[in-house]
Amino acid sequence: MLKELLLPLVSRFSAFNVFQYITFRSAYAAVTALFISFLFGPWLIRKLKNRKAEQVIREDGPATHLAKSGTPTMGGLMILLSLSVSVLLWQDISNSFTWIALISLLGFGLIGFVDDYLKIFRKSSEGLQARFKFSAQVLLSLLIMVVLYINGNAHTTLLYLPFLKNPVLDMGLFYIPFGMLILVGTSNAVNLTDGLDGLASGLILLVGLPFAAISYISGRADFAAYLQIPYLPESAELTVLCFALAGASIGFLWYNAHPAEIFMGDTGSLSLGGVIGVIALMTKKEILLVIIGGVFVLEALSVIIQVVFFKLRGKRVFRMAPLHHHFEKKGWDETKVVVRFWILGGLFTILSLSTLKIQ
């Protein structure tokens, strides 16, 4: 918005020329999201405490989590506010990717909000019924994919694999269900990971940074040609979103670090997972997302493996799923689990960026 408002005035005030630079707007998008989190965080925590919007702790979880009872949830509202405002201020609002990303962020956030609200109202760890929650995710994903398909470019339906220069397949209309799978899967994977203080928010930061680099490189014809990756002019603006995402994650982590003052709840985890999924789709890094979000993938796989093995053989592979609870059950301190998962997330980040050159 600021670009559209101030850049036309550059003839009168030359300093406004900086608004044409994505790097400038990206940096200040991160600062803006961080500032909004610091400004509204304490107020939101007080309001949620006053309204008894408290997290309901699973009785079958690690015993150490019982001390978290009474901690307010729905902290994802802080993330939605800081990220949305920052994007609207600093990103090019004439860019279609801006609005597709916001639809994903706010749409999945709304589903998560309803789920959190029902949990609080019922004082139960069960919120929105699974079939309704899943159906809402599928319908929203369908809407997003139809919009992406209609506004697509020459690369939209092509499937690219890491380490390979050329696309391996043109999916055509099958790109829509493929993208729906990415969106639903990513939103639920982040949701499953959000179980320890600071775990999900720290990992989101580690996912946002490589996507910022990928978005910027993909939107530059010279860089894209040098690295032999698809040139996607509109994707450059996603750099602003990714930096705003990093700023919002750091801002929330300030209050979510152990011992957490607030939890993000499904409001935050579903919205963050949804926006990460749509960024991967718009930058044509759908398969690379498996590496960038490697920890989220491992967490989701641990749940799938646990359920399948128990149904087939009546045995559990892990002491508890998702994976972070398995290590807690083994006696690891919560902070140790979080930091080690962050380290693993950092390794996945480095590996994902290396694929841009090794192809």
Rank of each mutant, 00 (worst) to 15 (best):
G268Q: 04
S187R: 00
L351W: 13
V18W: 06
M1P: 14
F38E: 15
T355F: 07
H325P: 00
K330L: 01
I45D: 12
R25V: 02
Y226K: 14
F341R: 00
I120M: 09
K329D: 00
T73P: 11
T98S: 06
S37G: 04
L66S: 08
E328K: 00
F40T: 12
W254K: 03
L203S: 07
L199Q: 00
L48F: 05
S96P: 14
V190T: 04
W332F: 02
V303K: 02
K68I: 00
I350P: 04
F163I: 07
A248Y: 05
V290M: 06
V297D: 05
Q137W: 06
L203G: 04
L353M: 03
V10F: 11
Q129A: 14
A246C: 08
G277N: 10
N256Y: 03
Q129N: 14
R131V: 09
S84L: 09
K119A: 15
L5M: 11
F40N: 08
L353H: 03
I304M: 04
L44I: 15
I305P: 05
Y160I: 11
G75R: 08
R25D: 09
A33Y: 09
L203I: 06
S215A: 11
H326W: 03
L164S: 15
Y149E: 12
L289H: 12
L353E: 01
N50V: 15
I144R: 04
Q129H: 13
L281V: 11
N151I: 13
V338D: 01
I358W: 14
D197G: 00
I291K: 10
A53S: 12
N166T: 15
A221L: 14
K49F: 10
G274Y: 07
L161Q: 04
S141D: 06
A154H: 12
W43V: 15
I358V: 12
W342D: 07
T98E: 03
L181S: 07
A321I: 01
F178H: 08
L7G: 01
S249H: 01
S271F: 07
K165I: 14
D266G: 01
K315F: 12
F174A: 13
R46A: 09
G75I: 12
L102F: 02
A27I: 10
A67F: 06
F19Q: 07
S125N: 06
L196G: 00
G185I: 06
V295F: 01
V317Q: 14
E299I: 06
L105T: 13
S104R: 11
K123I: 09
L205D: 13
V138T: 06
S215L: 10
V10T: 14
L183F: 03
L288P: 05
Y226W: 13
T283H: 00
Y117D: 15
P233R: 13
F211R: 10
I229P: 14
L312Y: 03
S141F: 03
S26N: 05
Y21V: 04
V337E: 02
I291Y: 08
R25G: 02
L289V: 10
Y149W: 09
I287N: 05
F134D: 05
T156Q: 04
L288F: 06
G152L: 05
A67Y: 09
A257H: 11
F121Q: 15
W342Y: 08
I144D: 06
M264E: 03
V146A: 08
I150T: 11
S94L: 07
F35W: 13
K165S: 13
S82N: 01
K133L: 07
A224Q: 15
L164E: 15
